[in-house]
């Protein structure tokens, strides 16, 4: 596929040239960086270092209407969810783009989830290679890298005065149709600059975890007291799940009255006791240690066994944001130590 050069000064022009799309881009707000729908292309910022939240909500919103209903006594009118406009996520990190690839089989296998599918189909991902990985990043341990392309349609890499644009998919190619004019053709020297920039970024990643045979090691630690210790320090706040780009658990809630209302899908968290409690009061995951154990085994054993991907991309947000300093890497290292 084609490569392009985009002058940094032409960024706004480039984004405007994408045409009539919902443009989701990183914005700074209240000390955090978030992906938001922006009206004005000039608001998109690529120099924000640390992304507090992934743009997972673009394909799997935190609250989403499954259907609206109106009960007319002897019949029920059901109106299915909204139409989705073409959407471009601009500036997504490679780890977060990979998380979409991890989520795809969950929503598409067995029963196809029409809500996820229509959003995913309507969305083009323009990624931003990481120039300055954070001190929590460990994507190479999960097969990623600061310039990873998995899941992306276009990857942009900062090479000084320009962004180096790699078109990676048919979706990306189609998007560039109206925007190639804003860019220049990339030369071999530019490609070399990009390779060098990515190599430098990779060298800045400090953390790593050995995941070899981890899916088999975890079940062997099931009864280990380590889980009690981890569970004792956890406060069950759920922030690790809400900011995880691959967490997908949800609840279904009704809003309104029995006459008129909506059925909603909302993010839920396996770290909460209510997540699994039966109407009888019985709870199969009755304390924080059983819930953390399930969360980590789900990501590194059950999910890969069922769906072929480890459900982690090495973004490290769960480590950074945990108020009691639970560290996923340390937990996985303990699992390995117990096995060895």
């Amino acid at each position: 596929m084609d490569n392009y050069l985009l002058q940094k000064s032409k960024l706004t022009e480039f984004l405007t040239s994408l045409g009539d799309v919902n443009l989701i881009a990183p914005v700074a707000a209240n000390g955090t960086t978030r992906f938001e729908l922006i009206e004005n292309a000039a608001k998109a910022k690529l120099d924000l270092e640390d992304y507090t939240a992934s743009p997972k909500k673009v394909v799997f919103p935190q609250t989403e209407t499954l259907f609206a209903f109106r009960n007319k006594g002897d019949s029920l009118d059901i109106e299915e969810g909204e139409e989705i406009a073409p959407t471009v996520v601009f500036g997504i990190r490679p780890c977060d783009a990979k998380s979409f690839v991890v989520l795809d089989p969950l929503f598409n296998k067995d029963f196809e989830d029409p809500y996820y599918k229509k959003r995913r189909d309507a969305t083009v991902l323009i990624g931003q290679a990481c120039a300055e990985p954070t001190n929590r990043c460990f994507c190479p341990s999960l097969g990623g890298s600061p310039g990873g392309t998995e899941g992306l349609d276009i990857l942009m890499t900062d090479i000084g005065n320009d962004y180096f644009l790699e078109v990676l998919s048919e979706k990306g190619k189609k998007l560039m149709n109206g925007s190639a004019g804003v860019c220049a053709a990339a030369a071999a020297a530019d490609n070399a600059k990009k390779e060098k920039a990515l190599e430098q970024s990779l060298g800045k990643i400090k953390r790593q975890v050995d995941l070899k045979q981890m899916h088999e090691m975890l079940p062997k630690t099931f009864e280990d007291k380590m889980w009690k210790e981890v569970g004792n320090s956890c406060i069950g706040c759920g922030i690790c799940t809400y900011n995880c780009p691959t967490c997908h658990c949800f609840d279904i809630q009704d809003e309104g009255s029995t006459y008129q209302g909506r059925r909603l899908r909302v993010w839920d968290a396996c770290m909460y006791p209510e997540f699994t409690v039966h109407a009888s009061g019985e709870n199969p995951r009755h304390d924080r240690s059983t819930r953390i154990r399930n969360r980590i085994m789900h990501k590194f054993t059950f999910y890969p066994n069922n769906l072929g991907h480890i459900s982690c991309v090495g973004c490290g947000r769960c480590i950074e944001l945990c108020p009691v300093n639970e560290d996923l890497i340390e937990i996985l290292n303990k699992v390995r130590a117990i096995n060895e």
């Binding site: 067995d110 029963f111 989830d113 658990c249 949800f250 839920d268 699994t276 039966h278």
Partner: peptide
Amino acid sequence: NRMKCGIGKCGK
């Protein structure tokens, strides 16, 4: 077990 989606996605 507690269920919401019925189709193996909600994780409960």
